[in-house]
Every structure is written in C-alpha cells, then in structure tokens.
C-alpha cells in the first residue's frame, strides 16, 4: 500500500483491561505486528498478548551491580594497599572483610542506578512529544481508558481496513493519529 508519512496510525479506545487484551489478540491474529497498547496501569497478560520478549533491564542491572561491586572493592584495595598504605601494628594492608560494607553499598547503588537509567533509556524517555498525544481523548490513557494503536509502519496497514478491524472489536472513538 501507499506509504503515508503524515499518519502515525489508527487508534481505538476500550473501557476495560479485558477488552483491551481481547482486542490486542484479535489485531495480532489479523496479522498486524506494529501494534501498541496504552493503559493507565500495567495490565496483566498484555505483554504476552503483544508478544513482547523478555527485556534487557535485568541484564543492564546485573552489569551495573557487578561494576559497582567490583569497582568498589578494587578501589578500596587500591587506596588501602597501593595509594595510601598505613602500617597499623603490622596488620595486613588488604583487610578485605573491612571493605565489604562499602563494596555492598556500591553494588546496590550501581545496580539501582543502572536499572532505572537503563529502563528510561530503553523506553527512550524523556520524550516530550509523541504522535499519540495528538489524539484529544488520549488524556484518558492516564486515568480510565485503554487504547490500541495500529501503526502506519505495519506493512499490512491500511487506514480504512485497520479502522474497520478496530470497529469490529467494538472500539470507541476510532481516530487516526497524525504524525507531526
């Protein structure tokens, strides 16, 4: 079909999480792949219905935690043994048990920071504007309505066809989402 650059997609509104999941399943059964859903709270089963794979946040968090922990430990080692050795009654310079509390705290700090920053980066946030905000009723996506958007980038996308599919699924307020 003709690629229409000024259209982001077609959006339909639903009033309950069950209807949303049902609609997403049907839209995907119809062969659409560039589909997204918007909800005021995380809906159980929605990720599966959309076929979302496991995300990268846990891996980023693990790497951040390991970096924080190892970096924290060896930094203390470097300070105590190499940079500023203090001979206190001949005790070993690498007194590693005394380094554990700080190592632990830095592990947590590294993991927590990378989990949050990783989540935001993967979600491409902050992003002040997005085409879906052009839909006037989209303000309800943060309170009591659930939206499904079939995106124009989908190879099967056809404005009338896609809108009809949403209509068959009893979506309210089907609107086209302009891309500007």
């Amino acid at each position: 079909m003709l690629h229409r650059s000024h259209i982001y997609g077609v959006m339909g509104e639903f009033s309950s999480p069950e209807e949303l999941i049902h609609a997403v399943e049907k839209v995907r059964e119809a062969g659409y792949r560039r589909v997204n859903a918007y909800s005021p709270f995380p809906v159980e089963g929605l990720s599966e219905a959309l076929g979302l794979k496991r995300n990268m946040v846990p891996l980023i968090c693990l790497i951040g935690g390991l970096t924080g922990g190892l970096g924290g430990f060896f930094f203390q080692y470097w300070v105590a043994v190499i940079a500023y050795p203090l001979n206190i009654a001949g005790r070993p310079l690498n007194s590693w048990p005394a380094f554990i509390p700080v190592t632990f705290e830095l592990t947590i700090l590294g993991a927590a920071l990378s989990a949050v920053l990783g989540m935001l980066a993967l979600n491409k946030l902050p992003q002040p504007h997005h085409p879906v905000f052009n839909v006037p009723r989209f303000t309800h996506a943060s309170s009591d309505r659930f939206f499904v958007c079939i995106e124009a980038k989908d190879p099967k996308f056809h404005i009338a066809e896609s809108a009809r599919l949403l209509q068959e699924l009893h979506a309210h307020h089907i609107t086209e989402v302009s891309d500007d």
Partner: peptide, 17 residues
C-alpha cells in the same frame, strides 16, 4: 513525567525495573 504515555512496551520494562 518525562513524556510517560502508558505504552505497553514501557510498562513491560517499567515493571522489571
């Protein structure tokens, strides 16, 4: 709010985080 729009893909990572 950093442009949060309740996208299912965002919630997916949000819940993990």
């Amino acid at each position: 709010s950093m442009g949060w729009r309740g996208s299912a893909r965002h919630w997916h990572r949000y819940q993990s985080a």
